[in-house]
Design a protein around this nucleic acid. Structure first.
Length: 289
DNA sequence: CAAGTGCCTTTATC
DNA sequence: AGATAAAGGCACT
């Protein structure tokens, strides 16, 4: 199957899958292989043509954010020369609509890790606790269910490289397995209320909550602040903060809750209701420097 | 190649 | 309230 892309609606598959928002995609030749929910599939882009197998068009459009009006979003967040450069450099990068459960666990695991290590953890978790599915002569594994992860022992999780995150994954999985995680309800809530609700899960702080909201719950005003975003602020946006504050966050030590909230609020006020898109472009831009 | 630093942070403790 | 330390282990230099 294929989708014809409109040049007025930019999309770039490589930027979208390379920018670090999802951890389960692999490029083999010109095809990207991935598992989303219960199915493995492959997809490639050649110019304005998007080809894929083992998935339907409606799913692809939804998952890859093809329904987002990226032209309008870009215009809306294009507030200065810096974001403008990022928007131009990575034109067509879109925010995926990931599975909320997978996203929740992935970002709990992602804390204080680098991207290659995160990919490895998620891959190992899936191989160990997911269901095997075959596709194109290759084996793939679905992301584990909450029940499966809730029952996993600390040692088994440690073998996946989770380290001290293992207990957070276990505890959060138990809560989700009980049925106390309702993505549809979270999606309906206002951003701050949804974030407050997510903070109740063990291992979920402000940063993880913002990532889950942005990458799986359609809260595009969420503005996750990590070390890279902090660097972006220090590089381009110091004018928007007091000299005292800039000094405080300039060191190597992690930012405090109050500092997080300040940076997060700046992002949301400055870039508006699609601040999350701005965050992702700036994040990828800073990492590519 | 070894050793040091950093990693899309959260939590516990003071 | 606000600062500080501790927490796997992998990846990169």
């Amino acid at each position: 199957m294929e989708i014809r892309l409109n040049s007025l609606k930019p999309f770039n598959l490589d930027y979208t899958l390379c920018c670090g928002q999802a951890f389960r995609w692999d490029k083999q030749g010109e095809w990207w292989f991935g598992v989303v929910r219960d199915k493995a599939f492959r997809i490639r882009q050649t110019g304005n043509k998007l080809e894929f197998e083992n998935a339907n068009a409606a799913f692809v459009k939804n998952y890859f954010g093809l329904e987002h009006d990226l032209a309008a979003i870009s215009q809306r967040i294009n507030r200065d020369e810096h974001i403008k450069h990022a928007l131009n450099k990575f034109r067509g990068l879109r925010i995926l609509g990931q599975d909320p459960w997978e996203c929740l666990i992935s970002y709990i695991c992602a804390t204080y890790k680098n991207i290659p290590a995160i990919k490895q953890m998620i891959t190992k978790l899936s191989r160990k606790f997911g269901e095997k599915t075959s596709f194109e002569k290759n084996e793939f594994y679905t992301f584990p269910t909450p029940e499966k992860l809730a029952k996993a022992t600390r040692a088994e999780l440690a073998q996946c490289g989770l380290g001290y995150r293992a207990k957070y994954v276990t505890e959060t999985s138990k809560i989700v397995a009980k049925g106390d995680f309702d993505p549809e309800n979270l999606e309906k809530m206002p951003y701050e209320e949804a974030r407050r609700t997510l903070l109740a899960f063990p291992g979920v702080g402000l940063k993880v909550a913002d990532c889950v909201l942005l990458f799986s719950l359609n809260k595009f005003e969420a503005f996750p602040v990590d070390v890279w975003v902090k660097r972006v602020v220090l590089r381009y946006y110091t004018k928007n903060f007091s000299a005292e504050f800039v000094t405080k966050i300039s060191g190597k030590k992690p930012i405090s809750t109050a500092e997080y909230l300040k940076l997060n609020l700046f992002g949301r006020r400055y870039f508006g209701k699609f601040a999350g898109y701005a965050q992702e472009y700036l994040y990828h831009y800073e990492r590519s420097m």
